[in-house]
């Protein structure tokens, strides 16, 4: 066998399956996005209408709303994830039996199915018998009348918390790995010079950690934009459309109003954003030289 045919035999089967499972739907959605296609009327895409579906999006207030919701959700969930992840990493990187035990615990929240996370927090936030609701009411009696998931801001906030709950521990694990790679003699030298803990963190830990923080932030941003399950199991997009992310709006347009052409165009707007972020993610991981 020649070298060429060996490579082909090894790579072709996988690429064939990827073509059938990812490339095909991507191209199909692209062509559909330029067509009129109401699924209730026709099983296949209809007339070519150019960029009409895209143009329509910018006059659609539900679309604009979903962009705003997605942006706020992404900012809150990424911010919380990185901050809490970093905080946990700084505490847990120190050796010790307790910390070792907690480091093992870190993997569990991520393994919980996102759909189940949505239900779990919905249950715990119930205004009558939710355990989180009762704990918060005990500390802040002023919040007693607050129905968390009926409030536009708090519903979006708690949706971000379900996402943070799984991802912050994972990021903590990633940061612990990076922290352990920093040689300790740098710290000792700085301590001899009389640096405070805050100075150590600000001028040594943070700069050395920043490449990992950038990678973690990009990765989490991509996954925040993809988040879907909890919207269905926790808020259903409500109250009103206060937690309807772009993902959920695509889903709603495609499978409730059955407007596949428009849904394809909407999904392409999401793909473009995610592709740009993926590009930066690859750059951050492998540098300009590529893979």
């Amino acid at each position: 066998m020649t070298r060429k045919s060996t490579i082909f035999a090894l790579v072709a089967p996988a690429m064939l399956v990827i073509t059938a499972t990812s490339t095909y739907p991507l191209l199909f959605a692209l062509t559909s996005s330029f067509r009129r296609w109401q699924l209730s009327k026709s099983p296949t895409p209809g007339k070519f209408i150019g960029f009409d579906n895209y143009a329509r999006a910018f006059g659609d207030r539900f679309f604009v709303n979903s962009i705003q919701v997605t942006a706020v959700f992404t900012i809150i969930s990424v911010g919380l994830t990185i901050l809490i992840g970093l905080g946990m990493a700084l505490v847990l990187q120190k050796p010790g039996r307790l910390n070792g035990f907690i480091r093992t615990l870190l993997i569990f929240p991520f393994a919980v199915s996102p759909a189940l996370k949505g239900y779990t927090f919905r249950f715990m936030l119930n205004p009558e018998y939710g355990i989180i609701d009762q704990m918060i009411d005990a500390i802040f009696p002023a919040s007693a009348d607050l129905v968390w998931l009926a409030n536009e801001f708090w519903a979006l906030f708690w949706l971000s918390v379900t996402e943070t709950y799984g991802w912050a521990p994972l990021m903590a694990l990633m940061f612990i790995g990076a922290l352990n790679a920093i040689p300790t003699d740098i710290f000792e030298a700085a301590k001899v010079e009389g640096s405070t803990n805050w100075q150590l963190f600000r001028h040594i830990t943070l700069p050395l950690l920043s490449p990992v923080i950038i990678i973690a932030t990009l990765l989490k941003t991509i996954f925040s934009l993809k988040m879907f399950d909890q919207v269905v199991t926790m808020t259903g997009g409500g109250p009103g459309r206060a937690t309807q992310t772009l993902n959920h709006y695509v889903y709603h347009t495609a499978f409730v109003t059955l407007d596949m052409g428009y849904a394809s165009a909407l999904s392409y707007i999401l793909i473009i954003v995610i592709s740009i972020l993926s590009y930066f993610y690859i750059r951050a991981l492998y540098g300009k030289g590529g893979i």
């Binding site: 990812s22 959605a29 993809k226 999401l270 995610i274 592709s275």
Partner: peptide, 21 residues
């Protein structure tokens, strides 16, 4: 390789749309 990586980041709702039809 980059193509494989990008398909990994595709939102599932995009994939499911054509497959539904």
């Amino acid at each position: 390789l980059i193509w494989v990586l990008i398909t990994q980041f595709l939102p599932p709702v995009v994939v499911v749309l054509p497959f539904f039809a």
